[in-house]
């Protein structure tokens, strides 16, 4: 397909290999044409979701002056880091990932996520052990550092995936934006579900609810734009988008759109309209949103196709 030549044999090979076929060498099979990536999958999707929810919870609670929520955010990010270690071939060498800061997004992410976890833990320790009041001047200093870091963590999954030029469906500047919308909406839904049971005094549930609805709307727009752009893009990206809509319909439509968008939006609207008991509806909405988030991220990772070599 992409062979650039005037050579008749090369052109014949390009024609021959242009259709996806399986080439066999003994028991080994090589697929010409489109080839699915199989290295990353559900675990990476779950890690990305946890990072997004953790970062939003951390930043949101820091701005609200709710130390328990900050601790929860840090804990979620820490769990994501632990899962991230299990994804590596050599977890013991994880710190080597800091060697290429500035060039590799994984290196940049390792540095920022590591620093955020440590700073967040320090905030919690200062509040819990030293008794410094949440929301004070020192808290603002932490917010100046941690809120931008949380924003980076939100876009980070998109940056890691978009750094793969071999997979056109991922290699898009829209993916970090989609990742931001996904993480933000999931985090806000989770935060809303946590506020009532923990009895946070003066929690702006209504205001947060509106922000959560807004983030769900933004996510819907980002997702629609992303898929539409991919359907107009190069062949491999089109094929991935087609697989996302058809072959992975359960994950995309059922999980990503149904559980991750429509149901949380409906439950939020009902809650904000005073149509039912707030706490159970918000909890159900958050659970649906989280599972939908994982499903959508998993679907996007799963349909990643390499550009055909021939």
């Amino acid at each position: 397909m992409s062979l650039m030549n005037a050579n008749p044999l090369a052109a014949a090979i390009a024609g021959e290999f242009g259709m996806p076929i399986v080439l066999r060498q003994g028991t080994l099979h090589f697929v010409s044409g489109y080839k699915l990536q199989t290295l990353w999958g559900f675990r990476e999707a779950a890690i990305f979701t946890l990072e997004g929810v953790g970062a939003t919870t951390l930043a949101g609670c820091l701005l609200l002056g709710w130390a328990t929520g900050v601790a929860l955010g840090v804990a979620l990010i820490a769990v994501a880091v632990l899962l991230l270690l299990s994804h590596l071939g050599h977890p013991a060498k994880a710190l080597l990932a800091l060697r290429n800061v500035g060039r590799s997004w994984i290196s940049n992410g390792t540095a920022v996520i590591g620093a955020t976890t440590l700073l967040g833990a320090l905030y919690v320790a200062l509040h819990g052990l030293a008794g410094l009041p949440a929301g004070g001047g020192w808290s603002q200093a932490f917010a100046w550092l941690l809120v931008p870091a949380a924003l980076f963590i939100l876009v980070y999954p998109g940056l890691v995936l978009s750094a793969s030029p071999a997979i056109p469906f991922w290699s898009s500047g829209l993916l970090p934006v989609l990742s931001l919308a996904l993480g933000l909406s999931s985090g806000l839904c989770t935060l809303l579900a946590l506020l009532p049971p923990l009895g946070v005094a003066g929690a702006p549930v209504e205001g947060l609810g509106r922000w959560a609805l807004l983030s769900l709307g933004a996510l819907a727009v980002c997702l629609a734009v992303y898929v539409a752009v991919m359907l107009q893009s190069v062949a491999a990206a089109y094929e991935s988008a087609w697989r996302l809509l058809r072959r992975e319909a359960l994950l995309f439509w059922g999980g990503g759109c149904g559980l991750g968008l429509a149901l949380p939006a409906l439950l939020l609207a009902l809650t904000l309209g005073g149509q039912g008991p707030a706490a159970p509806l918000l909890a159900l909405g958050a659970a649906a949103k989280l599972s939908g988030d994982v499903a959508l991220r998993y679907a996007i990772i799963k349909v990643g196709l390499f550009d055909p070599v021939f």
Partner: peptide, 12 residues
């Protein structure tokens, strides 16, 4: 090599 697989995803 830490085995993150990023290079394998980047190789066209």
């Amino acid at each position: 090599c830490i085995g993150c697989g990023a290079c394998a995803q980047a190789c066209p």
